[in-house]
């Protein structure tokens, strides 16, 4: 086997560029064979649907009748759709709010967990469990927790002498309520941070200490710069993840009160499965995809200013 391999190598150098040995060809054949489930998935369940979305977005289609081509009508309709405008705003408000709050809160927790405290495993599990159980059950739990009269959150606020707001029944407090829920469910970022924190070199802290840096100084000048690539990773994945929250929002508020929690995912869902306006729903999802690309591009551009990559 090895001999053939060696011969193949020498032969490869002798061959003109572009042609390949039988062995390399066999390997390539194997590559596609092993990859085939994903190649099919890529075409049938991802690439195909995206192209189909673009196609359907130029039609008027209710699934009951045949689609009819209407050009850019669905796209021009977006500009006069006031609910869409407020929905984009709600999506950004929730997405940015939930991402920043989660990234900051879990960073703080991870720093505490990294203090070589005893029972780290137990704490880690406690912070992680909410993320694992997040589903309809916990969505219903949070509707109960955030209930203005019978909920735990306002009970605890009451102990501190604070009159709690109406949360999910209030147009201005519903999104903050949902953000609290998503911080509670963001435990996986704690685990990711913790793993990365353990890779930060101790000598950097020692050097900072010799230079007279205190706890804050070390956190600000060593931990945060060294952790910035991971913080950035959590921000990108966190924002895209926040868009998935529409399923739970559907159960908790169904977009209300007065559309104050109508995130884009929910709006698309409603156009498609309540109004059966598949053309408009598809145009909206193309728009959402574009929005995500723009926001990710902005994050990458901003990252150049604050993300620190160690020279390899």
């Amino acid at each position: 086997m090895l001999r053939i391999d060696d011969r193949a190598k020498t032969r490869r150098t002798a061959r003109p560029k572009g042609t390949r040995t039988p062995l390399a060809r066999a390997e390539a054949r194997n590559f596609y064979l092993f990859l085939s489930p994903w190649l099919i998935g890529l075409v049938v369940f991802t690439g195909g649907p995206i192209l189909a979305s673009v196609g359907i977005s130029f039609t008027d289609w209710s699934l009951l009748s045949d689609p009819s081509f209407i050009g850019f009508d669905n796209y021009t309709r977006m500009f006069t759709d006031e609910l869409l405008l407020s929905s984009v705003w709600v999506t950004l408000y929730f997405g940015v709010g939930a991402t920043l709050a989660s990234v900051a809160a879990t960073f703080f927790i991870a720093i505490l967990l990294n203090q070589k405290v005893r029972g780290v495993g137990i704490f880690r599990a406690i912070f992680y469990i909410p993320a694992v159980v997040a589903g309809v059950g916990t969505a219903l739990l949070w509707t109960n927790l955030l209930h203005p009269d019978y909920g735990l959150v306002n009970l605890v606020l009451g102990w501190a002498g604070i009159q709690g707001p109406g949360w999910l029944t209030s147009t201005s407090w519903a999104i903050p309520g949902l953000i609290i829920m998503s911080v509670w469910g963001a435990g996986n970022t704690v685990v990711i941070y913790l793993a990365a924190l353990q890779n930060v070199s101790v000598t950097l802290y020692e050097a900072a200490t010799i230079d007279g840096a205190g706890w804050w100084g070390r956190t600000w000048h060593v931990t945060i710069p060294m952790m910035s690539p991971v913080i950035f990773f959590n921000m990108i994945t966190g924002f895209i993840g926040s868009l998935q929250a529409y399923a739970l929002i559907l159960i908790m508020t169904d977009g209300g009160p007065e559309n104050s929690t109508m995130v884009l995912g929910l709006y698309i869902y409603r156009q498609a499965f309540n109004y059966f306006d598949l053309g408009y729903a598809s145009a909206l999802s193309v728009g959402l995809f574009a929005l995500i690309l723009v926001i990710t591009a902005i994050q990458f551009a901003a990252a150049r200013r604050w993300v620190h990559y160690e020279a390899k």
């Binding site: 369940f45 991802t46 979305s53 598949l278």
Partner: peptide, 15 residues
């Protein structure tokens, strides 16, 4: 990995 589920939901449902 960047594609959110909502974008695929409608065409997959049709399929």
């Amino acid at each position: 990995m960047m594609i959110p589920g909502e974008v695929l939901l409608v065409p997959q449902f049709i399929m």
